[in-house]
Simulated scan of single mutants.
Amino acid sequence: MFQRLFLTAVLTPFLLIATASAEDLPAPMGRVILTVSGNIGVTNADGAAEFDLAMLDALPQTRFTTETIWTDKAAEYSGVELSALLEAVDADGSQLLMTALNDYAIDVPASEAVSGGPILATRVDGHPLSVRDKGPVWVIYPFDDKPAYKTEITYSRSIWQLKSIEVED
């Protein structure tokens, strides 16, 4: 009896900690459109954080109007800042391996994730981005607000149809 009580007293805190970390981020209710993995502290799946559109919408939103080299005119893009997403999953790394639905992949320095920097756009002019329109998630930089972003390097990091981000050392 004493041994059972002792084990219960010792193991219960560890079980509560494990349960709490699994509940830090709710499970997606809809279709998963973005998975963040690697060096993250907040998960809702096996070593990853999976997001549906509603979960991304629940994070702080940013919007700006900009032209891109891929579109005919300026449009308003809205979504969560990359920096806010990384903060939400407690990311700790220096590189972000971003991969698109078509398996295009690009390494992006984590230092790009700054306030006023790129967003994970889920809407253009208030409408959800479809796969046909470079969605459901498109990394967009505020090109018109910060002309320094108008470089081939930044254009290559403006990955559309983003499906995953792996946070690496």
Results as ranks from 00 to 15, higher is better:
Glu112Ile: 09
Asp103Thr: 15
Leu86Phe: 13
Asn102Trp: 08
Val80Ser: 14
Ala110Glu: 12
Ala84Pro: 01
Ala113Arg: 08
Trp138Cys: 01
Gly135Cys: 02
Glu112Pro: 01
Gly116Ile: 08
Pro136Ser: 06
Leu96Ile: 11
Ala74Asp: 06
Ile140Gly: 00
Trp138Arg: 03
Pro109Val: 09
Val114Ser: 04
Arg123Pro: 00
Asp107Cys: 02
Leu101Tyr: 05
Pro128Val: 03
Asp103Cys: 03
Ala75Ile: 00
Ala75Pro: 00
Ala84Arg: 09
Ala100Asp: 08
Glu76Cys: 04
Pro118Asn: 08
Asp133Gly: 03
Ser111Asp: 14
Leu120Gly: 08
Gly116Ser: 07
Asp107His: 11
Ile106Thr: 13
Tyr77Leu: 07
Val137Gly: 00
Gly116His: 08
Ala75Ser: 14
Pro136Val: 03
Gly117Ser: 06
Ala91Arg: 07
Ser111Pro: 01
Asp72Gly: 09
Ser78Ala: 05
Asp90His: 10
Pro136Arg: 01
Leu82Asn: 09
Leu82Asp: 09
Asn102Gln: 10
Val80Ala: 15
Leu129Gln: 07
Ser78Trp: 03
Tyr77Gly: 10
Gly116Met: 06
Val124Ser: 13
Ser115Cys: 01
Ser111Leu: 08
Asp72Pro: 06
Arg132Gly: 03
Ala75Gln: 10
Phe143Ser: 03
Pro136Phe: 02
Asp72Met: 11
Val114Ile: 15
Phe143Met: 13
Val124Ile: 15
Leu96Met: 15
Leu96Thr: 13
Val131Gly: 05
Asp144Thr: 06
Pro118Ile: 05
Val137Ala: 01
Asp133Ile: 02
Tyr77His: 11
Gly117Asp: 05
Asp90Lys: 13
Asn102Phe: 09
Ile119Arg: 02
Glu87Val: 12
Leu97Pro: 03
Glu87Lys: 15
Leu82Cys: 07
Val89Gly: 07
Asp90Arg: 10
Leu86Pro: 13
Asp107Phe: 06
Val114Gln: 13
Gly117Trp: 06
Val89Glu: 05
Lys134Pro: 00
Pro142Cys: 06
Asp103Arg: 13
Leu101Gly: 07
Ala75Tyr: 09
Ile106Cys: 05
Ile119Phe: 04
Asp107Glu: 14
Pro142Arg: 06
Gln95Trp: 08
Arg132His: 10
Arg132Gln: 14
Thr99Leu: 12
Ile119Gly: 05
Leu101Met: 14
Leu86Arg: 10
Gly135Ile: 02
